[in-house]
């Protein structure tokens, strides 16, 4: 038998295997549970019960996806300590703590993290944090050197600016424990960063967070015009091609 005929037999068999259990479960288990999930999440459960059964199911299928999506909820940011959810409001001293909004007045804004652009704050001289514990006049040692890291996939290449980092940090904070100061010596991946290694030691915790809004802060250098995405070995060696 030819190779293509084999494939046809296999497709038919798989279709049967999938179709039979799907049909039987439809008979035994109507889509009722989804409706129950939906109504238990709203105060209007009784309203939905009054609507005909088919209508309830349709509503549940559409709406339940949104009910669970925490990211769609907009939380007020920069709350005062007694209302912020981790300070104890039974503690008298909590009320003596400075609310973030008071301190952030006049600082350049962002839409992530603390809602403050800390780097711009220093650049615009809206802030003058000390470089030394006791001496207010000591100046940081700023190194203005950009490192370009090519990215294999389609994301724009990464530009690491030393200037913004050395405004805040000493060389010894990163070198050599987190980053070996040598070209090609550091393996960095987004999974490592998300799990709190490499850039993720600070980013995602104290410096700007890792989310869709912030991708382009690092991935900032567009690919050259003649750039083509590398093909995976699964594509280049595809026997069915």
């Amino acid at each position: 038998m030819s190779y293509k005929a084999h494939a046809r037999w296999l497709t038919a068999l798989v279709t049967m295997l999938i179709a039979v259990p799907a049909w039987s479960s439809e008979v035994q288990q109507p889509a009722q549970p989804a409706a129950a999930v939906w109504s238990s999440f709203t105060d209007q459960g009784s309203v939905f019960a009054a609507i005909s059964e088919s209508e309830v199911i349709r509503l549940a299928d559409v709406s339940s996806a949104n009910v669970f999506n925490q990211n769609l909820k907009k939380h007020e940011s920069n709350l005062a300590p007694p209302e912020d959810g981790i300070h104890d409001s039974n503690n008298e001293a909590t009320f003596a703590l400075q609310p973030p909004k008071v301190a952030f007045k006049g600082l350049p804004e962002t839409t992530f993290g603390n809602q403050v652009d800390w780097v711009k704050s220093i650049d615009q001289k809206a802030l003058a944090p000390r470089w030394d514990r006791v001496n207010p006049d000591e100046e940081p040692f700023v190194l203005d050197m950009d490192i370009v890291r090519p990215v294999k996939a389609s994301m724009p290449d990464v530009v690491f600016p030393h200037r913004q980092h050395t405004e805040w940090l000493a060389c010894s904070n990163c070198h050599p424990a987190i980053f070996i100061p040598q070209k090609g010596a550091n393996q960095i991946s987004m999974s490592a960063i998300l799990l709190g290694e490499k850039c993720g030691v600070c980013h995602g915790k104290v410096s700007f967070p890792i989310e869709t809004k912030t991708c382009k802060k690092c991935h900032s250098k567009p690919k050259p015009d003649d750039w083509k995405p590398p093909l995976s070995s699964a594509t280049t060696n595809n026997p069915w091609k």
Binding site: L97, Q98, P100, A103, F104, N114, V116, W118, L127, P129, R130, W131, D132, R133, P140, E167, W168, L169, A170, S172, N173, V206
Partner: peptide, 16 residues
Amino acid sequence: PHWFHRVRFRCKVCHA
């Protein structure tokens, strides 16, 4: 609160 301390000191003071 990191923000409170960052307004007054750079990271280097505590972390280095």
